[in-house]
Computed example of a mutant assay.
Amino acid sequence: MRDFSKGHEWLSINTATIRKQHGAEVPLDRIIDQCAERGIRAISPWRDQVAAVGIDKIARQLKAHGIGLSGYCRGGFFPAPDAAGLQAALDDNRRAIDEAKLLGAPCLVLVVGALPGALDGKALYKDIGRARGEVRDGIAASLEYAGQVGLPLAIEPLHPMQAADRACINTLEHALDLCDELDPSRSGMLGVALDIYHVWWDPKLQQQIARAGKERLLAYHVCDWLTPTRDLLSDRGMMGDGVVELKKVRGWVEGAGFAGFSEVEIFSVFDWWKRAGEETLDICIERHRTVV
């Protein structure tokens, strides 16, 4: 396992981690500057943050700072109540693939979606099997285009608590089953984004990480699971503040062949989003060196 104690060259910051500072939204160009000031050499930005500043400006800024991407957030949300909605989702995913390619991302992260309308409190249908079928078909169609442009897709399984509204793929095993069905040759164009927050509890985690192997492990996200958790979406913990055996899991991930960035992704409405971005980044660096 790599030794992170002497530096942070393998640290990436998912820009959700400091998108709010002192409780207010901070533009992506400022976030990139803050990362550059600390020698952080990779980020994973969100599409809405990129759009707010302008993708060409962000591309130039990243190049000027020598900062790369560990991923791009996000594609997915494939299910829809009708044919028009399904096509709109495919069109949006094609745009996301193009954006990721332009920015030099190694993969587009897919939060696949679930019951349409559930995020707004009114599911337009309740058949989760249907949703999973639409996810499968949407990934298959997007994979065809992604292959043409050479941009890998990374399915992110989400915790079962989000099965109704955000993602109906909820275990690493399920995500890998889809990968094996749609990409049996293990081409490197379809894999998984492994987010500790969503998978740490899984009794099959070590087995499925080994199954994934180097070809399927496209991104690795770290944070911690707090007890008690005050909000199931936006109360992630800083690494070392919760119950996850982070070094053990990274050992499994690297043992399977992953040699990329450990990407910090923290949604924290009660704590870290209330702080200065500089403070949060400094602690991310320290925890990356000591507990990740």
Rank of each mutant, 00 (worst) to 15 (best):
K63Y: 15
D183E: 05
E173H: 14
F4C: 10
Q162N: 13
S187E: 07
N170R: 02
D56R: 07
D48F: 11
T15H: 11
R186S: 02
A100I: 14
G147R: 04
G54V: 08
D127Q: 04
P157L: 03
D3T: 11
A114D: 01
G240W: 00
L153M: 13
G257Q: 13
V149F: 12
L124A: 10
Q208R: 09
V253S: 02
T290Q: 06
M161P: 14
S268L: 03
H8S: 09
R275I: 08
L102T: 05
V50G: 02
R95A: 14
R47T: 11
H288S: 10
A123H: 15
Y72S: 07
Y72T: 07
T15R: 12
Q207M: 15
P45T: 12
K20N: 12
T171Y: 05
V222G: 09
V253C: 05
S12W: 03
A212N: 04
A193E: 01
E215C: 13
N93V: 02
Q21T: 05
I43D: 03
S5G: 13
P116G: 03
S234R: 11
G121K: 14
D98N: 09
S12F: 09
G255R: 06
A100L: 13
G76H: 06
G68T: 10
T227C: 01
K63I: 15
H288Y: 06
V264D: 03
N93H: 08
W201K: 00
Q61I: 07
Q207L: 15
R130K: 14
N170P: 08
T171K: 05
L205W: 09
S187D: 04
L62W: 07
R275C: 04
Q206W: 12
I209C: 05
G138M: 00
S142I: 06
D29A: 06
M238V: 04
R74Y: 12
D48Y: 11
K274H: 10
L103E: 13
G104Q: 04
A51C: 13
K248S: 12
H174Q: 15
L28W: 02
V192W: 00
A141M: 11
T280F: 00
G188R: 00
F77S: 05
C107G: 11
I43F: 06
A164T: 14
Q148K: 11
P160H: 03
A96S: 14
D177N: 11
E181S: 01
D29E: 15
D137V: 01
I283N: 15
T17W: 02
